[in-house]
Measured scan of single mutants.
Amino acid sequence: MAAGGDHGSPDSYRSPLASRYASPEMCFVFSDRYKFRTWRQLWLWLAEAEQTLGLPITDEQIQEMKSNLENIDFKMAAEEEKRLRHDVMAHVHTFGHCCPKAAGIIHLGATSCYVGDNTDLIILRNALDLLLPKLARVISRLADFAKERASLPTLGFTHFQPAQLTTVGKRCCLWIQDLCMDLQNLKRVRDDLRFRGVKGTTGTQASFLQLFEGDDHKVEQLDKMVTEKAGFKRAFIITGQTYTRKVDIEVLSVLASLGASVHKICTDIRLLANLKEMEEPFEKQQIGSSAMPYKRNPMRSERCCSLARHLMTLVMDPLQTASVQWFERTLDDSANRRICLAEAFLTADTILNTLQNISEGLVVYPKVIERRIRQELPFMATENIIMAMVKAGGSRQDCHEKIRVLSQQAASVVKQEGGDNDLIERIQVDAYFSPIHSQLDHLLDPSSFTGRASQQVQRFLEEEVYPLLKPYESVMKVKAELCL
């Protein structure tokens, strides 16, 4: 049975990233139509530049190519590739079939990587351009969430054990800070992308030097003109047959890092959902379990974690691919890159769409948070109580021993009897502590235990987050809708 299948058929496997999760716009960027249309555009740009620099290419040939950029006979191309065992030459023939007058000058002087690699770089750039505003929107939604809850005390956790208090907004800023680093890295790697350009079979530009009869300047002009037509500021000066596969490492490393950030955020949300302090959106008709109707599973956060793990592992592909590119190139890269580049971007696209949807509907339960604080705060307040007693004339050592005994009794009630923490009640009825009984409410005010959390939130948002989001103001209103 021949390899390949009808990918629109229910009898043929289709990647869930495309069929179930990723956005239509990201799927289109990695589609065959987008790819092969870009090949034709690159052939047109090459012909236009070659004509401008004096090669015998007519206006009629150029116009014929322009008129057929979208006229792609995919069936013919597939048949040609089956016959020739070469995808680029299959599309040269297919393009030439609908451009008979231009057929002889299509791909003039070029090698397969002229269309293959340059198209990949265009796709990487455009895919990054799709991700950047999506990530900015996630940051914006979380920034709104953090600002609104900047002063809401909550129990902090280290080692997932109760620690000092923080605020809900401050905790959210930990998430935002990681995503801001990801946004900066995505922008950097996007701006650092260079075009492969017009380089020939081993990167020496020998074929173009021959076409222009040894004119170095025209060869350099050709490279520059096509690079500018493709919208790049610069091209690699040095290439082998391909652009260095280190570029793929750079791009997928940034995406993998984004995956790590999203995994951490969504894990926190899942843990908070278990504590009943916070939940992701839950639709009115949504079913959490087929057997347990009360369940409210954090399905979206779980999906993000599941896909983020996949995204983090994909960076190993370009690392290994770059390491086995012998001399000017081997074909070890080809099949692998067809999979890992598309999957990385479709996965990143999915987790950003999902995280935006989550961040637009996060639900906080202040009463649950308050109750958990009441359970733990008495123990945390013991040092403040000791200091207040010393100020009232008591002995630190005597007070410490009193607190120690009462704390152990209260802990026994919590752990052995399943009761509430009654340390404060014990202190309130103990005559030894009568000098500070009137101060206990103040000493137990949760806001006095959150330090500068709310001020940190305000400063972080104003100095770091809002300036970073400013270039994306025009796209901030787009909502994230999930079908599944």
Score class of each variant (00 low, 15 high):
H217Q: 12
E220M: 11
E48Q: 08
T154C: 08
E370V: 07
L377F: 04
A392K: 12
A230F: 04
A335H: 04
L341S: 13
K101H: 09
A136S: 14
G54R: 09
I369Y: 03
N357L: 05
E370S: 10
N353W: 06
H7C: 10
L132N: 15
M387K: 04
S23K: 11
H91I: 03
F95A: 07
K415I: 06
Q325F: 09
D11H: 15
L132P: 11
K134V: 08
I424V: 15
D430H: 15
N336C: 12
L468G: 08
K218I: 06
C266Y: 03
F460S: 03
L346T: 13
S323M: 09
Q428I: 09
L155N: 01
M389A: 07
D11N: 10
G169N: 04
E64S: 13
A47T: 06
V364P: 08
A102S: 11
T58A: 10
Y466E: 12
A230Y: 03
V363T: 04
H263N: 15
K170S: 02
A381H: 10
P293Q: 00
G200Q: 04
K402R: 14
V92W: 00
L121W: 01
L319S: 01
V168W: 06
F460I: 04
F282P: 00
A348D: 03
Q428L: 15
A3C: 14
F30S: 01
G169Y: 02
R171N: 00
Q61I: 10
C266A: 09
A150H: 11
S454C: 12
C266K: 04
A291Q: 02
L362S: 05
A392E: 14
T347M: 08
K391N: 14
A143S: 13
W39D: 07
V390N: 06
V115Q: 06
F145S: 10
L258K: 06
K101M: 12
Q356Y: 11
G214K: 09
E473V: 14
F236D: 05
T267R: 01
A308H: 03
P153S: 06
L355S: 07
G361W: 07
F282T: 07
S306E: 00
T204S: 14
C98Y: 15
L222S: 00
Q221N: 12
Q51T: 06
N71L: 11
L193V: 11
Y34N: 06
N336G: 13
R188A: 06
R33S: 07
C399W: 05
K367A: 14
P298I: 03
D117S: 02
T38K: 06
F282H: 07
K66H: 11
G4Q: 15
I269Y: 04
T167P: 00
L211M: 13
L307R: 02
L272G: 12
L311S: 02
A110W: 00
N274K: 07
H442N: 13
L124I: 08
W45G: 14
G104I: 10
I265R: 02
I403E: 06
S447V: 15
K367I: 04
R83L: 10
F282W: 09
L314N: 07
A342Q: 09
V414H: 02
I369P: 04
L271E: 01
S9M: 15
T119Y: 14
P446T: 05
R196P: 01
M76C: 14
E80C: 13
L179K: 01
V88W: 01
A392R: 09
G96N: 08
V219F: 04
G104L: 12
I351A: 10
S151V: 10
L307H: 15
W175L: 04
A143P: 00
H263W: 03
Q455K: 14
S359Y: 11
I57L: 06
I57R: 01
T58W: 08
S434V: 09
C113F: 00
L131V: 10
V368M: 02
D87C: 00
M387A: 14
R296F: 12
D398W: 07
G104R: 11
D317L: 05
Q455P: 09
D268E: 13
P446H: 12
A388H: 04
Q375K: 04
M225Q: 13
L311Q: 07
G200C: 02
K101W: 09
T38M: 06
L272V: 10
M65S: 04
I386T: 13
G5F: 12
F157K: 07
T166I: 07
N71Q: 06
A77T: 14
L128N: 15
F449N: 04
A322S: 10
S12R: 15
N68F: 09
F449L: 03
L272Q: 06
E280M: 00
V219W: 01
P100C: 06
P162G: 04
A480T: 15
R309C: 14
E50M: 06
L165E: 00
M380T: 01
G104K: 13
D422G: 08
G8W: 15
D332P: 03
Y294C: 00
Q397W: 01
R37F: 10
A103R: 13
K147T: 12
V478M: 15
E425K: 10
R426N: 08
G393P: 04
P446K: 04
P467C: 08
D398M: 12
I105T: 08
K246T: 04
L461C: 15
H159D: 00
T204Y: 03
I373T: 06
D144Q: 15
L406Y: 12
N274T: 14
N357F: 08
